[in-house]
Design a protein around this nucleic acid. Sequence first.
DNA 1: AATATTCGTGGAAACGATTACATGAACCAA
DNA 2: TTGGTTCATGTAATCGTTTCCACGAATATT
Lengths: 330, 330
Amino acid sequence: MATINDVAKHAGVSVATVSRVINGNAKVSPETITKVKQAIAELDYRPNLLGRALRKTRSERILVLLPNIANPFYAEIVKGIEDVANKNGYSIMLCNTDSDLDREKKYIKMLKSHLADGAILMASELTSEELTELSQEIPIIQCCEYKVGLPITHVSIDNEMAAFKAVNHLIGLGHKRIAFIGANNQFLSSTLRKEGYIRALEEAGIDYNPAYCGYGDYSYKSGFRVMKYLLSLDPRPTAVFCISDLMAVGAIRSAMEENLHVPEDLAVCGFDNVYFARMFKPTLTTVSQPMYDLGCVAMEVLLKAIESKDMETMHYILEHELIVRESTVK
Amino acid sequence: MATINDVAKHAGVSVATVSRVINGNAKVSPETITKVKQAIAELDYRPNLLGRALRKTRSERILVLLPNIANPFYAEIVKGIEDVANKNGYSIMLCNTDSDLDREKKYIKMLKSHLADGAILMASELTSEELTELSQEIPIIQCCEYKVGLPITHVSIDNEMAAFKAVNHLIGLGHKRIAFIGANNQFLSSTLRKEGYIRALEEAGIDYNPAYCGYGDYSYKSGFRVMKYLLSLDPRPTAVFCISDLMAVGAIRSAMEENLHVPEDLAVCGFDNVYFARMFKPTLTTVSQPMYDLGCVAMEVLLKAIESKDMETMHYILEHELIVRESTVK
DNA sequence: AATATTCGTGGAAACGATTACATGAACCAA
DNA sequence: TTGGTTCATGTAATCGTTTCCACGAATATT
């Protein structure tokens, strides 16, 4: 592979001049430009990005850490991130942590090793201390999931309010025995969504019943399992709010197996509005997060932080939307 | 951030020695090792990967190009790739081309600019010439989709045989009017699956009827649309073989809207066995590709090619499996 | 005892780019 | 004419590593 030196010799100029032509940031005479460009074409020269990044201490690359690329929710966010990154001359590196702390740490190590100029973290498993320390070294943004009270910018939605609205919708349909399928993990969204659930009940004068609360891991299977348990209660709930669409679909299948009809016997509401929410029969009522926009905003903010160092930490809350479909209303 | 120079000074040795300690490939006295390690720890030193890669002309990174990370089919393959890569000290960069040729070319440019040591391409949109040229410069592997007759190793399944078996299964159930939902694109798998479909019909003495063949783009929507058309035919087909699970699900929904029952009125068979194939009601009969293994093999072969330059091109065909579920058999 | 080998280490060149500084030519103002 | 700008370009330092080569000390071989 040709180097800048080869090009310089071929064109009969110095490497400095070649570099100037490539970067277009200094005056070079028209004839020289032609000569150099021709040499570049003839040798099929392409700058070595490693050399460039090393010299500039800027790689123009962004790390995106996410637990699972197979999750359609993240996929949509990534699209937003990519679009903004590409528009600004940055490329992104997708890193699948599989919710494995060791794996995440490996990628963080790469990040610290100057392989990227910054990172967007989704559902990081790092502790608050580790995150804070990392943020002092390199610009990072938390997207969707975030630890509260840290000096780190995040982009998210109002999870408490979203859950509140969803449960309120169920209450408005006349339901009194409303179950909840959440998750027992360290993520703030889990807590907030449960809080929204409880507040909606309280404001409607319905007693909060812990027995109506089950916990899964966002997966189809766990939704199926937890719903099975909830349906065994007497009296059984007539509605359920799930904090993920996958669990909601699991819940629906569970009800079907008990020969219950959705929504007549059991109203089901999900969360996320992933692409298959409308593929199922019945189609799924759910809370839509502006996934693409979440990605865009996260990337825009990160780029700003990279350019201007030392940004103040900000918290961006984007709009969500309750989408009513067949699983709650006939 | 501390550099190797800082460490050397701190430990009172030369940079060469520090490097030797880090890489552990040359003799260093035990006391020196201790000194250096301590200095590294005290300064929280981490080698700059750019400097290292530049010097070694090896980045120990692999590019993985895929059309769409949101497609669960690819997600599973990526897991296999990642596992093997990590095990061998390589990290991978996931690049989403969105089936956009410009985008793909941008990533290929990065690849050629020494940002990675090799690449795995899935469903590349490049021409045979471009692929061949690229392969002469940098080790690449084609995974799943591939152009035939190129001097480039690929890892895939026997698509013709898989389709043959699937259609044969439908024939075995007594169906005579079997439709086909494929894709009109440049990918070999589309052609091969159609060939398998036709061969199964022929061997069973059933006339191939082009009117029973529709074409989509692998998506739920297109499956829905094409099935709608196929069901409008008279006589309408009693079974359909779809070359993607998403289209199969679309087909099922289409049948439901016409008040047809699956599988009684219409048997449906998909392809890929993505994770939600068993979430649907009825659960989906489909062809399972060994996605994880495809990823593993692709990565293993690529690593071998990187290590030993100039490998002969090989074609790896992995086993597939027909998974019979409710959408074809009550 | 003389010579050869091994060992641990340091100095400095390389990897491929960018860029601060230097330089000489051309131009302009006084 | 002289001194100061501007312009186009070249020289060389630099980014942070790895690694070739050299060298003296210690050990092994004859």
